[in-house]
Design a protein around this nucleic acid. Structure first.
Length: 355
DNA sequence: AATCCGGGGTC
DNA sequence: GACCCAGGATT
C-alpha cells in the first residue's frame, strides 16, 4: 500500500449501506418546492438560495423569484436593480450578484456546463453547489457535502476533530458513498436523502436516533456521544459597530437613497446616506459633517435600529430632515427597491413604513 | 487557515 | 442570547 493511502484513510470505517437510506428517503422525504425538478436553472437557483439559509426562509422566495425570472435568459437580461430588489431580505447579497453574473455567462455559452468541474467555474458556485447541481440536475456520481452531510459523517464515524479542520476528512469519508452501487445509481436522490436525514433525524441537537435507518452502524450512537458531535471551533466575539443615517425627504415626500459599492457589506443594495460604521458611538455633532445636504434642520428619531450579523452587531441611529429637492447623488426611494433588512429597520424608526 | 458576508428560526 | 442553516470568495 502506498504511504499516501494510509495517511488519507486513518479511520478504518465501513460506510453503512446506501440502500437503507434511500429506502428511508422514499418513505420520509420532505416535500419541497424544488423536489423533483431537473431543470438545471431551477436546481441551481434553489442551491444558491439555500446557501446558509433555511428551507423555511427560501420556500416563498423561490417561487417568487422564478415567477419573475422564469429561465436563465430572463435572469441574464434583467438589470441589476431588479435582481437586487428580488433578493432583498435574503442576505449574503454577493450570492445575487454572482447569480446574475453566472446567468449571463451561461446564456453566453448557450447552456449550463454538464459536470461539476465545469459548473465550478461559474461565479458563486463552489465545491458544494457544483456537486449538488451535477448530481441532482445531471445525475453525475458526485456527492455534495454540506453541513448536514458533515454532521452525519462526523457521527457515523465518530470523528471528534473540530470543524472546520475536520472538513477534508469528512468530505473524503462521504465521497466513499459513491462507490456504493445504490448511491451511484441515484446520486441526486442520495444527496437529498442525506440532507433530509440531517434535517429531520440527525439534527444538531437531540438527534432522533431511534428513527435513523443507520442507527445500528453509527459509531457515535454506540458510544453515546452523538449529541456532542460534530465538535466546532469556538467562535469569536461579535464587534459592535455604530453609525448614524439620514432620512431626507424632498418636497414631494420622496426619500433619498444611494447604491452601496458592489463589494463588501450589503454590496449593491440601496441605503440611506450616513456616517461610516465604527466601534465608537457617534454624537449628532460628529455625524453632521456626513449629512447628505447642508443647512437641514435634522430631527433625531427615537431609538436605534439594532441588527445582528454573523461577525458584527450594528446599532444605527437616524436623523430625519426635509429639503426642497434631493441633492445630487441621492435617488428617490422606489416602493420596491432593493433594501437590506437593516435599512428597512431604520425606515421603520421614523415611522416611514417599510414598503 | 482565517475572515468576511445576512437574516431568521429555534431552543 | 447562542446556535444553526443545501457555502463562496478573498487573503
Amino acid at each position: 500500500m502506498p504511504a499516501g493511502a494510509a495517511l488519507s484513510e486513518p479511520f478504518a470505517f465501513t460506510l453503512p449501506p446506501a440502500a437503507a437510506l434511500l429506502a428511508w428517503y422514499a418513505r420520509q422525504k420532505r416535500e419541497l418546492p424544488w423536489r423533483g425538478e431537473t431543470d438545471p436553472y431551477r436546481i441551481w437557483l434553489s442551491e444558491v438560495m439555500l446557501q446558509q439559509t433555511t428551507v423555511a426562509s427560501v420556500g416563498p422566495r423561490y417561487a417568487r423569484f422564478l415567477a419573475r425570472f422564469p429561465d436563465v435568459g430572463a435572469l441574464a437580461r434583467a438589470p441589476w436593480p431588479e435582481v437586487a430588489e428580488e433578493w432583498a431580505g435574503l442576505g449574503y447579497y454577493a450570492r445575487a450578484r454572482n447569480l446574475h453574473a453566472a446567468a449571463q455567462a451561461v446564456a453566453a455559452r448557450g447552456g449550463f456546463p454538464r459536470d461539476a468541474e465545469g459548473l465550478r467555474e461559474l461565479p458563486g458556485i463552489g465545491a458544494y453547489t457544483s456537486a449538488a447541481v451535477a448530481a441532482i440536475a445531471f445525475g453525475q456520481p458526485v456527492l455534495p457535502v454540506d453541513g448536514n452531510v458533515e454532521r452525519v459523517m462526523a457521527r457515523l464515524a465518530a470523528i471528534d476533530t473540530p470543524l472546520p479542520a475536520a472538513r477534508p476528512l469528512l468530505a473524503r469519508l462521504a465521497g466513499g458513498f459513491m462507490a456504493d452501487a445504490a448511491a451511484r445509481a441515484a446520486p441526486g436522490d442520495f444527496a437529498q436523502a442525506l440532507f433530509d436525514l440531517g434535517a429531520t433525524i440527525c439534527t444538531p441537537r437531540n438527534p432522533a436516533c431511534a428513527l435513523c435507518p443507520w442507527m445500528a452502524e453509527c459509531r457515535a450512537r454506540k458510544q453515546g456521544i452523538q449529541a456532542e458531535l460534530p465538535v466546532k471551533a469556538p467562535k469569536r466575539a461579535r464587534l459592535v459597530l455604530h453609525g448614524i443615517h439620514f432620512l431626507l425627504r424632498d418636497a414631494r415626500g420622496a426619500i433619498g437613497v444611494r447604491l452601496r459599492p458592489a463589494e463588501g457589506l450589503f454590496g449593491g443594495m440601496w441605503e440611506l446616506p450616513g456616517t461610516p460604521w465604527r466601534e465608537a458611538p457617534w454624537s449628532v455633532a460628529d455625524a453632521l459633517p456626513h449629512a447628505p445636504a447642508p443647512g437641514v434642520n435634522w430631527r433625531e428619531a427615537e431609538g436605534v435600529a439594532s441588527h445582528g450579523l454573523t461577525h458584527r452587531e450594528l446599532s444605527l441611529g437616524l436623523l430625519v430632515g426635509r429639503v426642497a429637492e434631493l441633492p445630487p447623488g441621492l435617488s428617490p426611494l422606489g416602493a420596491e427597491a432593493g433594501l437590506a433588512t437593516v435599512m428597512r429597520k431604520l425606515l421603520a424608526l421614523s415611522g416611514a413604513g417599510e414598503s
